[in-house]
């Protein structure tokens, strides 16, 4: 959790998924309502869309990364959260989210947010602003 001792440059890290399963992708499809067969239907993803296989919704990676922000700022501390999806996330991937404090002003703290896979490739990059808890 962030607090009054938080400084610019502080880095917070969270392992957000270890060996992503196809079933978790299906869970996310069910909860979010996004049933794009690219994410759960291997014959479609390969045969029709031309991908090596199914891959995760970008929004699943964004949501999992959001857990780090909730850990830092509490469930109602977020002011903004935005990302770019840089690379696909595949079943079997292991992801780590990292948030770095870039600015602190007037009770608001800015973070740069990056999520990388087990090969060190960025799959998501963005920013968030949070209210300093407490």
């Amino acid at each position: 959790m962030l607090d009054a001792s938080t400084k610019v440059g502080d880095v917070h890290e969270l392992a957000i998924v270890d060996d992503l399963t196809r079933t978790q992708i299906v869970q996310y499809a069910g909860a979010s309502g996004d049933y794009n067969p690219l994410h759960s239907d291997e014959p479609f993803a390969k045969g029709v869309a031309g991908y090596p296989g199914v891959f995760a919704h970008g929004m699943l990676t964004m949501a999992m990364t959001g857990r780090l922000l909730v850990d830092l700022a509490g469930p109602e501390g977020l002011l903004s959260y935005g990302v770019r999806f840089k690379s696909q996330v595949w079943p079997g991937d292991t992801l780590t989210a990292t948030a770095t404090v870039t600015e602190i002003a007037d009770g608001v703290l800015d973070l740069s947010v990056v999520t990388t896979n087990q090969r060190g490739e960025e799959v998501l990059a963005g920013t968030a602003s949070v209210r300093i808890p407490g």
Binding site: P37, F44, A49, G58, M59, L78, L79, S80, G82, F85
Partner: peptide, 12 residues
Amino acid sequence: GSGLHAEQHFTY
């Protein structure tokens, strides 16, 4: 199926 999500931003 070929459309992909490039960015997403939320303001609370």
